[in-house]
Amino acid sequence: MSALCEIRGLSVTYQGHPVPALTNVDIDIHPGERLAIIGESGSGKSTLARTIAGLLPAGARVRGEMRWSIGQAPLPGRDMGFVFQDPSASLNPVLTIGEQVAEGARRNLGLTWKAAHERALDMLERVRIPDPAKVLKAFPHQLSGGQRQRVAIAAALATGPGILIADEATSALDMIVQAEIVSLLDELVREAGMTLVFITHDVALASGFADRVAIFRNGELVEAGPVGAVLTAPENGYTRTLLASHRDLSTPPLIREAAT
């Protein structure tokens, strides 16, 4: 399969940090796949997301290659969308929701403000915001965290990008909202045939919908492959530890129920 993006020998070191945040990473992103990048704090997963997105801070040293099949990197904000952990940080507090969702479409697709607003209304409907016409005129602080994240997704998808990078996009939300947002993201990218790079610390969350997973630790790619293969028969000891640490409702409790 020809890759959408081939990453080879990628190393990233932030300014003022002696230790690289990513070391010698080789990974392919396939067109139309849901790729989950999984790791704990300090694993380098967010650095990979920022490198793909072209959002590394000034002074970061990057070695290695990122080859895009279309010859050039997708234009961030137009061909590539982002959703981050904290939607409040992605939204401008003094602009209405409508202005923010419409802005990218107006600027990048050359729509008029009127057409861009119609597009924004359509996007808010697609992310299933209740009463979208009213929300268009609202400000971010008037929405709940889950609704703000829906708005951030609408803004990221308003230009019809081919690839979406979601960096811990559901980690700040409660579990019920998290499940809703993950299912929404899954549905939207599938519908549009988009490529999704989903960065998460939660292997179980990724196991529910990713096609491929890549496990990171201490800046290195530990293991990557189809989700079923990696999670059923992990080759690496760290992947096994990560799976063993997972706790859900069928995990035996640490206490005996009858209180003493």
Partner: peptide
Amino acid sequence: IAAVPRLVTGLP
């Protein structure tokens, strides 16, 4: 309960 992510390790 429904919102707790389950580790899906079976076939895809």
